[in-house]
Lab assay of single mutants.
Amino acid sequence: RDEDEKEKIKEALKRGNEDKAKEIAKRANVSPEEYERLRKEAE
């Protein structure tokens, strides 16, 4: 379940949809550090 959320965040970031990614991260309680890591992976 947690991994699904992280995949959704990465997908949103790949599409350049940072607002959606942040919204998912907030809902999934993803830490800022984890969010940054996902953002780097998505580049």
Rank of each mutant, 00 (worst) to 15 (best):
R1L: 15
R1S: 15
R1G: 14
R1Q: 14
D2E: 14
D2Y: 15
D2M: 14
D2L: 15
D2S: 12
E3A: 13
E3V: 13
E3Y: 13
D4M: 12
D4L: 12
D4V: 11
D4S: 13
E5F: 15
E5N: 10
K6P: 06
K6W: 15
E7Q: 14
E7W: 09
E7F: 09
I9C: 04
I9T: 02
I9Q: 01
K10Y: 04
K10A: 01
E11L: 04
E11C: 07
E11A: 07
A12K: 03
A12I: 04
A12D: 04
A12V: 02
L13E: 03
K14D: 05
K14W: 01
K14A: 11
K14M: 10
K14Y: 03
R15W: 09
R15Q: 15
G16A: 05
G16E: 04
G16V: 00
N17H: 13
N17M: 13
N17K: 07
N17S: 08
E18M: 10
E18R: 06
E18D: 09
E18Y: 08
D19H: 11
D19Q: 14
D19E: 14
D19V: 13
K20I: 14
K20W: 13
A21D: 01
A21L: 02
K22Y: 05
E23N: 07
E23C: 07
E23K: 07
I24Q: 03
I24H: 05
I24S: 03
A25L: 01
A25E: 02
A25V: 05
A25M: 05
K26S: 11
K26V: 12
K26E: 13
R27F: 01
R27A: 13
R27P: 02
R27S: 10
A28P: 01
N29H: 10
N29M: 09
V30A: 03
V30Y: 04
V30M: 11
V30E: 01
S31Y: 03
S31P: 10
S31T: 12
P32I: 12
P32D: 15
E33P: 06
E34N: 01
E34P: 00
Y35W: 09
Y35Q: 03
Y35N: 03
R37S: 10
L38N: 01
R39F: 08
R39D: 04
R39V: 14
K40D: 11
K40G: 10
K40N: 11
K40W: 09
E41W: 05
E41A: 09
E41K: 05
A42F: 07
A42P: 01
A42I: 12
A42W: 06
E43W: 11
